[in-house]
Lab assay of single mutants.
Amino acid sequence: ASVAVIAAGTQGNIFATSALRSMRFLQILRMVRMDRRGGTWKLLGSVVYAHSKELITAWYIGFLVLIFASFLVYLAEKDANSDFSSYADSLWWGTITLTTIGYGDKTPHTWLGRVLAAGFALLGISFFALPAGILGSGFALKVQEQHRQKHFEKRRMPAANLIQAAWRLYSTDMSRAYLTATWYYYDSILPSFRELALLFEHVQRARNGGLRPLEVRRAPVPDGAPSRYPPVATCHRPGSTSFCPGESSRMGIKDRIRMGSSQRRTGPSKQHLAPPTMPTSPSSEQVGEATSPTKVQKSWSFNDRTRFRASLRLKPRTSAEDAPSEEVAEEKSYQCELTVDDIMPAVKTVIRSIRILKFLVAKRKFKETLRPYDVKDVIEQYSAGHLDMLGRIKSLQTRVDQIVGRGPGDRKAREKGDKGPSDAEVVDEISMMGRVVKVEKQVQSIEHKLDLLLGFYSRCLRSGTSASLGAVQVPLFDPDITSDYHSPVDHEDISVSAQTLSISRSVSTNMD
């Protein structure tokens, strides 16, 4: 405001104040949320940038038409019409005319000016109207692209899951042992070998009828009888010197917790746990005396209480009078009846079946994303299906024409109403129809010849004498029936064969 007042002088105070007050009108834009329509302006900018070359070309040609039209109309009207006294007036008329506004304040009066105005109007309006069409088509394409992008975003994750499931299904095939990355992934998420051994031990116990592997080994086996189970490696608790092959000598807290839970599941009659010990102070733990958990001091820290809870689970003690015997301790020893080589084939089979199920689920979810969402998608899918159906029908028609023997030239002739090819031409065609016709002709010829021969033979049998045999009239074959199959017997006289037959029969009768 200060700059405006200084620039306008003393009389500019009122002007500056009114100008600043008129800017209050811009507050109405906040009512229509114009300040939060950044996406709309961004869309407009992207459309203009995408079609910038077309817009520049249309505007450039339109500007050239405007300059030439205004100049030529000015030359034609400057002497006869006072409205075109300057080139600026003519340029104003050209702008209003070519933009199809047409105020009518300035019009050419001479015939030359009117002809020039009409010609440049028809030429220039087309170029001035091009930017509107370019922007409209650009907006339509952009909206369609955003629509497809939205659908693509919805299909991206199911497609990625389907590709991942397909690759993992491919890589978990037993015949592709060189693909090891997927197996490394499952090695990292699978439970430890100790848990798998416990699982298979329970399965084997159920197969043995509820007997433990130790009891199965204690059962008497006759001499020479084959053992029911192959000899396997035996594993004891981590306190002993022997372990399962492939295990580490260090046992983690999870393994100890699972070991304690498995020992508690063996039965309360074979294992008696004394009350857990509780320390009397955060600094020292008295293991010899058993106290109640309700006497825990409230001033303990979080670490002390955590250690106390761990001691409740991981440090059970047995009383002296209830101490288990050596046999019970041997039964409680952890027996590992299986090795990694025995378990891994079954584990890989389970993983393979899981990968198949996940692949089928991913495939079903991806197919669900291909379903249409709204009416536009339904129409688009219907149009695509219609085009596909037309293509299939056209391909089927082409194959039928190839089989029947109607080529493209014959199809055009039928469409024009011309006469089709004759039967002889159809026979000569190298097509399925021509071959079928040729075979039918040959079969008819053979059938006719057989009928003639059978009739001749029956007449010979009825006559009974050589004289009557020679008097029999043998009809000749019709050459038209034989089609294109020409037998060497067709052109010979059958009477010669009949005479030869009669001579042979007379000779045979004389010999008798």
Score class of each variant (00 low, 15 high):
V350D: 15
L396P: 15
V507G: 11
D377N: 15
K367N: 03
K367Q: 15
I503F: 14
R392G: 13
Y170D: 01
D377Y: 00
I403S: 14
E368G: 01
I163S: 10
S171F: 09
E368D: 04
W167R: 05
Y373C: 11
I393N: 05
L179Q: 01
R411W: 08
G239R: 03
A166P: 13
Q164P: 08
K332E: 15
T172N: 12
Y184H: 02
D484V: 00
R371P: 15
K416E: 11
I393T: 14
R392L: 12
P372A: 13
K394N: 13
K376T: 11
P268T: 13
S431R: 13
I354V: 13
K376E: 12
K412E: 03
F302C: 06
R168S: 06
K394R: 12
T172I: 13
E321D: 14
A165P: 03
K394Q: 03
R352P: 02
F308I: 08
T369S: 11
T369P: 14
K412N: 10
V296G: 15
D418N: 15
D388E: 11
F366S: 15
M278K: 14
F366C: 15
L390V: 08
L450M: 06
P316A: 08
K416N: 13
M389R: 15
R462S: 12
F359S: 12
L357R: 14
M432T: 13
D377H: 12
V216M: 11
K449E: 05
D377A: 10
K394T: 01
G405A: 11
T280A: 06
R505L: 11
P372T: 05
I379M: 13
Q263L: 15
K412T: 12
I163F: 08
R168P: 07
I393M: 00
K412M: 13
Y373S: 15
G405V: 14
Y185S: 13
D374H: 08
S171A: 14
L360P: 11
E330V: 11
Q397P: 12
M389I: 09
G391D: 09
A166D: 02
W167G: 12
L453P: 13
Q473R: 07
L390P: 15
S468G: 00
K394E: 00
I163T: 06
K367E: 05
R406L: 07
I403N: 06
Q297L: 15
S171P: 07
L360Q: 00
D374V: 02
R168L: 12
D374N: 04
S395G: 10
A181V: 11
D388A: 13
R392Q: 11
L370V: 08
M389V: 15
R352H: 14
E326Q: 02
E380D: 14
R392W: 05
L179P: 14
S242Y: 13
L370R: 10
L390M: 14
R364W: 12
K367M: 11
I503L: 08
P372Q: 05
Q473L: 15
L396Q: 12
Q381E: 11
R265L: 02
W167C: 12
H386D: 15
Q381L: 07
S383T: 15
R399G: 13
T369I: 09
S192C: 15
S171Y: 05
T182I: 11
P372S: 14
S319F: 15
K358T: 15
D374E: 05
D374G: 11
V507L: 14
F366Y: 03
M259R: 10
L357P: 13
R392P: 03
L198R: 10
D173Y: 00
S463P: 04
E285D: 08
R364M: 13
R414G: 09
G405S: 08
G409E: 13
D374A: 12
I257F: 15
D322G: 12
I446F: 02
H486N: 10
Q397K: 15
S301T: 11
G407E: 13
L450R: 13
Q397E: 13
D377V: 11
K449N: 12
V287A: 14
P372R: 09
Q397R: 12
L370Q: 08
Q402P: 05
R406W: 12
I163V: 06
D173A: 15
I393S: 09
K449R: 10
L450P: 14
S333C: 06
G405D: 06
I393L: 08
T369R: 12
D388V: 14
E321V: 15
Q381H: 14
T294P: 12
L370P: 09
Q286R: 10
M389L: 12
V400E: 13
R399P: 12
D374Y: 01
R313S: 12
I393F: 03
A362P: 14
D173V: 03
E368A: 12
K449T: 12
G405C: 10
L396R: 13
R168G: 06
W300S: 12
G420R: 13
I163N: 08
P372L: 02
W167S: 12
H202R: 10
Y186F: 10
P316H: 12
D490E: 05
K394M: 00
Y373D: 11
P475L: 13
R207L: 13
W167L: 11
R168C: 11
I354L: 01
I446T: 01
L454W: 12
D173G: 12
L169P: 04
R411S: 05
Q473P: 10
P345H: 14
